[in-house]
Design a protein around this nucleic acid. Sequence first.
DNA 1: TATAATGGTTACAAAAGTATAACTATTACA
DNA 2: TGTAATAGTTATACTTTTGTAACCATTATA
Lengths: 152, 152
Amino acid sequence: MKLNVDIIAENLLAIHPLLYKSISKPIKNKSSITPGSMFVMGILKRNGMLSMSEIGNCLSMPKPHVTVIVDRLIEEAYVVRQNDPSDRRVVNILLTEKGLVEFEELKEALSINLKSKLNLLSEEEQEELSKASQKMKEILISILSKEKNKEF
Amino acid sequence: MKLNVDIIAENLLAIHPLLYKSISKPIKNKSSITPGSMFVMGILKRNGMLSMSEIGNCLSMPKPHVTVIVDRLIEEAYVVRQNDPSDRRVVNILLTEKGLVEFEELKEALSINLKSKLNLLSEEEQEELSKASQKMKEILISILSKEKNKEF
DNA sequence: TATAATGGTTACAAAAGTATAACTATTACA
DNA sequence: TGTAATAGTTATACTTTTGTAACCATTATA
């Protein structure tokens, strides 16, 4: 009998390119936001505030790249830097109101793009997809994204 | 009440970077295969044989990029080109035995990487993740990946 | 206090992916 | 038959991402 871990690995491997296609592509058409910037905005929205290092760890992104992305997001006023009073080396990043709005618009663009495809599904199937994606998100976040920790 | 499509959009947006991290990174450490090459091998494994255009459509990948990736895969003998007798313009791509073995090894590397993280979950949660990812894969493939068709 | 470690930035090189145009060969069709 | 459309390749320029090393400021520690 096949182990759960192997089934999961196989499924993730199949899902990954589908998400890549259904998320990155529609968003590229809608906005000048790059995938990396979108990821950063997403975790900031979920976590409220993260240091540069935490962002890099969350996304397995090299620190110099985080700097570049955050610089661009600051230019657009989507995020702000904030010095950490308890450790003056640390720079915390926060999503601004404008950044939040932009992120919601990206999500909306994705929704619209998805809608036409979800029409191919029955009500029950849509409900199943909603539940399955919710469950997957919760579990993956719980095991993969020790977002406040450093050791991954 | 929140619409299913919005819930799904939000969940996909959260899952995407987690997969990116848990798949692309472990594989980069294990092999010189790039994400793009891995995607191509994956759909070839699921579909058996695809033309260059079909590969590009499946993955929303520009055709010139497909050519580059397939060229590299052929160098490594992971795939072969095969002329289509019914339309001599068409070049079909097939995964070789060596390519299949390589892909299975990538999946194995991912399994090993996942195993340590799944240990944090109970048996029931692992079962839930297995079921949820299976469901998500099936539904997303059915609506996003009309792999043999051209109109996306 | 001297030294090591950490957080972050800068600079640079290289790989991966995207986009477009030009081109060949083949097929479809008016 | 002649023209348009399609499949694929090649070439090129560009953006995004990755990786590494050097560097500064700050904090931790021996």
